[in-house]
C-alpha cells in the first residue's frame, strides 16, 4: 500500500535515486522494497544460477557415495551432498521472494535458459576427485560466497551467511581427503596429484571471465550485488591455494606461477579460456548428462508430486465437509 503510494507519487528516476542511496549507505534491499526491474532480473539470474549449481553439483559427488572407500567417508560425503540439496532449497526460497516460482526456475534450468556452474560439467573419475572438489571447487565457491554475505539483497546475503558455515566444513572434508591421499601410498598420492591437475584450472574459471570480459560485472558492482570483481576473487583463491598445495607435497599445476614482490601476490599462468567457453557451450563430458539426469529424476517423480497434491486436496475437502 505504502509502496504503491510512493510509486504513484515519485517518478522512476527519483525511486532509482533513493534505491541507489540506500545501497550506497550499505542498507539491505528487502523483498517488498522498490527495486529497478533490471536489479530484480539480475538477481533472479544470479541467485537461481547459484541454486541450480548447488543442485546439479549433487551429481558429480553423488557419483561416489556408493563407492566411498570407508564407512566414515561414505557418511561424510553423503551428508555433504545432502547439505548441497539444502543450499539449493534456501537459495530457491530466497529467489522466490523476487516473484518467480521454483517450478519456473526448474523449467528454466531444464530448457537451458538458466545456467549452472560449468565446473559440474567435468566428470568425477576417481575418489581423489571428491577431495579436489571439496577443497578446490568448494574453496573457490567460498571465496565468492564470503563476499556475497555483504550483497545488497537481504535474503541473498542472509542465505550466504548460513551457506558459508557449511561450505567451510565441506572444504575441510575435501582437504582432509587430499591429506590422506597425499600422505598415503604412492598410488594414492598419484591419485591426489591427478585430481589436482584436472580440477585446478576449472576451479579458477569458476570466478568467471576476466573483469574486462564480464558482461554483468560493472552494474552488479554498482548495485552491490557483487562486492568484489572476478579477478580479485580469483587472485585471493590463487594466493591461498599455493601453501595448501605445498603442505600436501604435491606439484603445483601452474608452471608459470611466481611470487610478485611488488604486488605481494602471485602472478600466474594464463587460463585456457577457449576450453572454458568450449565446455560452457556444450562440449564438456557431462553437459547433456547432468540436465538429462535432472529431467529424468523430475519426470520420474511427477506421479509422486501429483499424488501428494491429490491427497492434500482430499484432506482439505474432508476438513471442509467435517466442519460444515
Amino acid at each position: 500500500m505504502v509502496n504503491n503510494m510512493i510509486k504513484n507519487t515519485l517518478s522512476e528516476i527519483e525511486l532509482e535515486r533513493l534505491f541507489q542511496e540506500k545501497i550506497d549507505a550499505e542498507q539491505k534491499i528487502e523483498p517488498k522494497d522498490w527495486m529497478p526491474d533490471a536489479y530484480r532480473q539480475n538477481l533472479i539470474r544470479q541467485m537461481s544460477q547459484h541454486a541450480h549449481s548447488e543442485v546439479i553439483g549433487m551429481q558429480p559427488e553423488g557419483n561416489w557415495i556408493t563407492r566411498a572407500p570407508s564407512l566414515r567417508r561414505k557418511a561424510v560425503l553423503l551428508s555433504k551432498v545432502q547439505d548441497e540439496a539444502g543450499h539449493g532449497l534456501y537459495l530457491y526460497s530466497a529467489t522466490e521472494t523476487l516473484g518467480i516460482s521454483r517450478a519456473q526456475m526448474i523449467e528454466a534450468l531444464q530448457t537451458g535458459t538458466a545456467k549452472y556452474a560449468s565446473i559440474f560439467n567435468y566428470p568425477t573419475q576417481t575418489w581423489g576427485d571428491m577431495g579436489a572438489i571439496g577443497w578446490l571447487v568448494d574453496g573457490a565457491a567460498i571465496c565468492n560466497q564470503v563476499s556475497l554475505q555483504r550483497t545488497s539483497y537481504g535474503p541473498y546475503a542472509r542465505s550466504m551467511i548460513r551457506i558459508c558455515k557449511e561450505e567451510s566444513f565441506h572444504q575441510r572434508q575435501g582437504y582432509q581427503i587430499m591429506i590422506e591421499l597425499a600422505h598415503g601410498t604412492p598410488a594414492q598420492k598419484a591419485m591426489a596429484q591427478d585430481s589436482l591437475n584436472r580440477f585446478y584450472w576449472p576451479s579458477l574459471m569458476m570466478f568467471g571471465p576476466h573483469d574486462s570480459e564480464s558482461a554483468h560485472s560493472a552494474r552488479s558492482m554498482k548495485w552491490k550485488i557483487k562486492r568484489e570483481t572476478n579477478d580479485d576473487l580469483r587472485q585471493k583463491f590463487i594466493d591461498q591455494t599455493v601453501s595448501q598445495i605445498t603442505f600436501l607435497g604435491l606439484e603445483h599445476p601452474d608452471k608459470d606461477l611466481v611470487w610478485n614482490e611488488k604486488r605481494e601476490q602471485y602472478d600466474s599462468g594464463e587460463l585456457d579460456w577457449d576450453e572454458f567457453y568450449s565446455v560452457i557451450n556444450g562440449n564438456g563430458h557431462c553437459n547433456r548428462q547432468r540436465i538429462q539426469h535432472h529431467v529424468k529424476a523430475h519426470e520420474d517423480g511427477a506421479w509422486v508430486r501429483e499424488a501428494t497434491a491429490a491427497y492434500n486436496r482430499k484432506k482439505e475437502l474432508k476438513q471442509t465437509v467435517d466442519a460444515a
Partner: peptide
C-alpha cells in the same frame, strides 16, 4: 543412498539422505 539427486523433489533428496545416514551410522 542411491536416491541422492534422484528424488521426486529436493526435500525428499534431503529426507532420504537423512534416513540413509541413520542406517550407515547404525552399521558403523
Amino acid at each position: 543412498s542411491e536416491w541422492v539427486s534422484e528424488g521426486p523433489f529436493l526435500e525428499e533428496d534431503i529426507a532420504l539422505g537423512n534416513v540413509a545416514l541413520d542406517y550407515i551410522g547404525r552399521a558403523r
